[in-house]
């Protein structure tokens, strides 16, 4: 598998609302493969495969969680907002502060020498966490406007076997899979058209998916089904419930808001081809773009495939590339099958 592509993706910062660099990378990458992507402005990108009357959506979000500079004090310490991030993982992280100039910063904390015993026991509350870029206050204020995003400075890394760790594997593993599916299907005859969406601001409001659904409704297009690819919780020493093992295939979502009939077809294809997967039971909110797409316009039956991932929304997310590989097989087989397009 083209690991380099995943590692390239992992090195592109793509915080929610600031996905321009990822978009530019994708446009270029697709262009090399002979595919013209359409720029959807703040909503992301889309590109198409296949032809015919039947239309399906395939959506992956390209944004990742990040810290945001909320306030800079007179000494130049940068205080943070951290949407979707556990403040306990912030201390002593290295960050890139993406202001007018990129700055290296560390999330500072008082050493134990200056703390009471009580203070040492409790996590540092988020309002007390700050980034130190080591520059004078005035210079920081000039270089780092309020709203500047700060991302983790960690290069992707191969772990043992087929596992990798990197910043923003949620959902760059999904983006990687979408690109692999695009390549795999590029030369194939498809039962209809697939419109891929590389969507923005999933973390928070699912804006890109909302835009995709709305645009189809507004233009009177009817969408036969949608595939959403995202990540889900991987099991580890601590997380057992509502989590799925790494390396045993992706999960297919099952629940009231997801399409039963499409799920049944996906399952039968998986067992036909001996592709491993887990069933992921989900109630009213899946926390993915499926929530939005399935009820956009006149309703779109939705399939949700998620890659198990450990340590979600931290800088040390881990996925197993075997799961990407098996998902690639499943999705590219399924999308060529007439039965998926006729149910």
């Amino acid at each position: 598998m083209n690991r380099e592509l995943l590692f390239d993706l992992l090195q592109i910062p793509s915080p929610s609302g600031h996905e321009e660099r990822m978009k530019a990378f994708l446009v270029k990458y697709l262009d090399v493969h002979g595919i013209k992507a359409q720029d959807l402005g703040p909503a992301g990108l889309s590109w198409g495969l296949g032809e015919g009357d039947k239309l399906a959506f395939f959506s992956v979000h390209i944004d990742q969680v990040a810290f945001v500079a909320d306030r800079i004090d007179d000494e130049g310490y940068i205080y943070l907002k951290m949407p979707g991030i556990d403040p306990r993982i912030a201390p002593s992280q290295e960050l890139t502060v993406r202001g007018k100039r990129e700055l290296v910063g560390v999330v500072g904390m008082r050493p134990p020498h200056f703390l009471s015993e009580e203070e040492q026991k409790a996590p540092i509350p988020s309002e007390k966490l700050y980034v130190d870029v080591g520059l004078p206050g005035e210079e920081v204020k000039r270089l780092v406007p309020v709203g500047t995003v700060c991302t983790w400075r960690l290069e992707p890394l191969a772990l043992l076997g087929s596992r990798v760790t990197g910043v923003g594997l949620d959902n760059k593993a999904g983006v990687f899979l979408a690109l692999l599916v695009t390549e795999a299907l590029g030369s194939k005859k498809l039962p209809g058209r697939i419109r891929f969406f590389a969507s923005t601001q999933e973390e928070g409001v699912m804006f890109g998916a909302g835009f995709a659904g709305r645009s189809a409704y507004k233009s009177g297009e009817s969408v036969l089904f949608a595939v959403v690819v995202d990540t889900t919780f991987g099991t580890d020493h601590e997380v057992k419930d509502s989590a799925f093992p790494l390396g045993k295939g992706s999960t297919l979502g099952v629940g009231p808001i997801l399409s039963k009939s499409h799920l049944a077809i996906m399952r039968s294809i998986a067992s036909e081809l001996s592709i491993p997967y887990s069933l992921e039971p989900l109630t009213s909110f899946t926390g993915t773009e499926a929530d939005v797409l399935s009820i956009s316009g006149k309703g779109i039956p939705t399939i949700l495939l998620s890659i198990p991932l450990r340590n979600m929304h931290s800088p040390v997310e881990i996925v197993d590339l075997d799961d990407v590989e098996s998902s690639l097989k499943l999705l590219s087989a399924a999308l060529q099958r007439e039965d998926l397009w006729s149910s």
Binding site: Y217, P256, I257, S284, F285, S294, I295, G297, K298, G299
Partner: peptide, 16 residues
């Protein structure tokens, strides 16, 4: 359908 899941069916019915 799916009213108890956050008024989902009613939304798309009204759109139709």
């Amino acid at each position: 359908v799916q009213e108890e899941m956050g008024l989902r069916g009613g939304r798309i019915a009204a759109a139709r």
